[in-house]
Simulated assay, not measured.
Amino acid sequence: MDSTKTVSVLNDLLNITNDRIQGFSKVEDKVWETHSPLKGDYDQMVRESQEMKADLIGLITERGGEPDDTSTAAGAIHRTWIDVKNAFTGDHTESTLENVVFGEKSAIAAYQEALQSDKLCPQSTVVVADQLEQLKSSYAKFQSLEKRVD
């Protein structure tokens, strides 16, 4: 197994995880003021994202790689779009949660693609598959939160 390819895929997933963390920070002010009972689920998702990030960095460094601890350009554009949209329409909880659901779907797709690429070593495949299950769980929770707000 070529560790360079594994490190590259893991760095892509690290960038996406950083997008999630930055995206979650945008949600906090918009949603939890009016839906404080939902904060526990949200806090758990943030903790899981931080753990996912640490796991990915560990895998990258174990394979002799340098972690690319940035976010993606697409994620930055998406967060900017959210800010612009909210500036014109007002900060609506529903649209904020819709954006989170969109981001989670994108992360799930990237993780699935990484697993199907055959570029991950066996240990990385196990970790990425576990993280994909966490993403799917997070996605389901946010869909649930979105429905409660409607």
Results as ranks from 00 to 15, higher is better:
V27H: 01
Y42A: 07
E28T: 08
T34M: 12
G23L: 04
E48P: 00
K5I: 04
K5E: 15
I57A: 01
D41E: 14
G40M: 06
D12K: 02
V9G: 02
N18W: 00
N18T: 03
Y42M: 09
K26R: 12
S36A: 14
V27W: 14
I60Y: 12
Q22K: 09
L14H: 07
K5V: 11
S49L: 01
L13C: 11
L14D: 10
G65Q: 15
T6M: 06
E66T: 15
G40D: 12
K39H: 15
E62S: 05
I60R: 04
G65F: 15
V46T: 02
D12V: 06
P37M: 02
G58S: 08
N18V: 01
D55M: 11
E33F: 12
G64A: 10
D43V: 03
L10Y: 10
M52H: 06
H35N: 11
D43T: 04
G40W: 10
G64C: 05
T17K: 03
I60Q: 06
S8R: 13
L14R: 03
V31D: 12
S36V: 14
E51W: 05
Q22A: 07
N11I: 08
M52Y: 03
A54P: 01
L56R: 12
D19V: 00
L59D: 10
T4P: 01
E62W: 00
K53S: 08
D29K: 08
T4C: 05
M52S: 02
K30E: 13
M45P: 08
E62Y: 06
T34P: 00
S49A: 08
V46A: 05
I16S: 09
